[in-house]
Design a protein around this nucleic acid. Sequence first.
DNA 1: CTGAAAGCGCTTACAG
DNA 2: CTGAAAGCGCTTACAG
Lengths: 345, 345
Amino acid sequence: MKGIHQLAKHLDISIGTVSRALNGRPDVNAETRRRVLEAAEQLGYVANQSGRSLRKGSTNVIGLMIESGKDNVDNSDNFFFGVIGGLQTVFARHNLDLAILPCPSEEDPLEYLQRMVARRLVDAMIISATQKIDKRIDLLIEKRVPFVALGRSHSGGSHTWIDLDFAGVANSAVDRLISKGHRRIAIAAPTTDINLGFVFVDAYRAALERHGLTYDPALVLRARSSEDGGYSVGGDLLALAPRPTAIILIYELMAIGLYRRLMEAGVKPGCDIAVIGFREAPRARFLQPALTCYRLSLQDLGTELAETLLSSMPDYAEIYSSHACNRLWPLDLVPGESDAFELAP
Amino acid sequence: MKGIHQLAKHLDISIGTVSRALNGRPDVNAETRRRVLEAAEQLGYVANQSGRSLRKGSTNVIGLMIESGKDNVDNSDNFFFGVIGGLQTVFARHNLDLAILPCPSEEDPLEYLQRMVARRLVDAMIISATQKIDKRIDLLIEKRVPFVALGRSHSGGSHTWIDLDFAGVANSAVDRLISKGHRRIAIAAPTTDINLGFVFVDAYRAALERHGLTYDPALVLRARSSEDGGYSVGGDLLALAPRPTAIILIYELMAIGLYRRLMEAGVKPGCDIAVIGFREAPRARFLQPALTCYRLSLQDLGTELAETLLSSMPDYAEIYSSHACNRLWPLDLVPGESDAFELAP
DNA sequence: CTGAAAGCGCTTACAG
DNA sequence: CTGAAAGCGCTTACAG
């Protein structure tokens, strides 16, 4: 005999009462509850999750799906570790546990998600790195699994998401560079169909046109979202004639490779070319001259993601109703020296 | 009605037969099996994990515990993402899924692990960042949960582990530096009780003494395992009088901060001081002069970890019996320019 | 306030 | 080869 039966036997009461005491039901004698709690603590009893889940229909586990083979995860300077802290702060309030579910690179992300959802391993999902068309969203809606997407998508009609304000950053960066006299501004963009790439480039184009400049597709430099990608962007940049006087990057780590490539060619960021990075990353903080970039609190983003997710789960919807809306997450300019010069007119 | 009952009704057969067909039992008519598989595919049926786990007593999920707030995770240049790929390659063969379980920084790691284990969320665990005394190991042994530790520990008597060969690296680095004429060699070590710190420093000491040099505790520079840590090591190094002519680092990212601090002081790695880094990290590859460091395949390490773990699980022990042993994982020297000079005698 | 019992969705001896 | 039934460990109406 084991589990709750063993505990009940040890206390010489019924398993029903043990369960009620453990779950904090009000209709339990205070002394009985105390005895149960004490014995559970002493014997190290914790309810078997399978039995509990089967009966209750919920697991108290929230899944965070990541695609471990992808550039955006491998190269994002522990973006996820930061966000996780925020998520857990909120989940801890409700005894929800977070499980990170890494989709193997050989497996189709949609099939992987389908499997996780069908097995009912988790009560709700957080997905990220949304594509322009992202069938995962349709799947989660169809299966009625509460979820929040970190990133927008054209899929799924209305659903819950939070996205970094890529358009805001593109806008701000273009404005800033133009105010310093730049007219030929390149941009680094991802090679994949990740939605943020479209948002970023579209906003860049709109910002240019707002200033009366013509959008030139040749200035959109595609690369992997890594230092290597930044290095290759550097090469492409140097090969353009006439050479752009400024570049805006989309991933934090690109800056490191770009600096390296430029240095090799004797082109100095902040003197010979203006560079604006994307997110302020621990690793990029060491660049010299200091990189102009944008800051956000990963902890706060995680908190907001969690609260938005809970607002879409029946059991918590009421508590978090004020978070039941989509959000563009702002990033704040961190001026550096990498674009700190005016271009002669 | 839902789940397997619905599927059985749809096919007008019993749930027992459906279950047997789905689980690949031999005693099912081929045509029946075909119909069941087809219907399951079409209706998107996947067995509810809770029902399955409750009945079978196993979940088909392997947990990887990480401590998300810790230096060694946040700053290890996506060490884990690399290992995960290898783990999944092996687990995929047996339809095992990997769930990463991040211990919240506010929670005691031992209590967290205890909770995860007691809930029976996973069939087996992988733990990492083992401490010299690590009660998690005693807990897993006591609860008879199959596990493998990435890192050794004094706890738990005999248990399954794989550890990077920190001693081998310390040895090799000391030998290499001494052969180039260095006599005053500093070492960077962690501030925490993580076991690898003890192993590394002990081996460094033994190597020095083997060469007839005296171990000097003042040359052991404690720091966080990050770029910041490397920067602070740089400061400590410059403050030593007489200044050491060489330094050996224990974490990959320290090199970046160290280089920066040395450059600020006009001290050039590879000319004025010899630097040997630890693991070859994507990010450190960009350092100039190129860092002398050590290489390992994270994918292979992940594969071996998984196979070792499976060798300790009753259902798989036989298949992986050849992996049922502890291992020191070798690292290969990648000579760079950061120590490429001989010291005048 | 407590106990006895039903039932969550599965898998697997057992009988036929 | 298939079906009927037991039972995995819980939670929760229901009765008292």
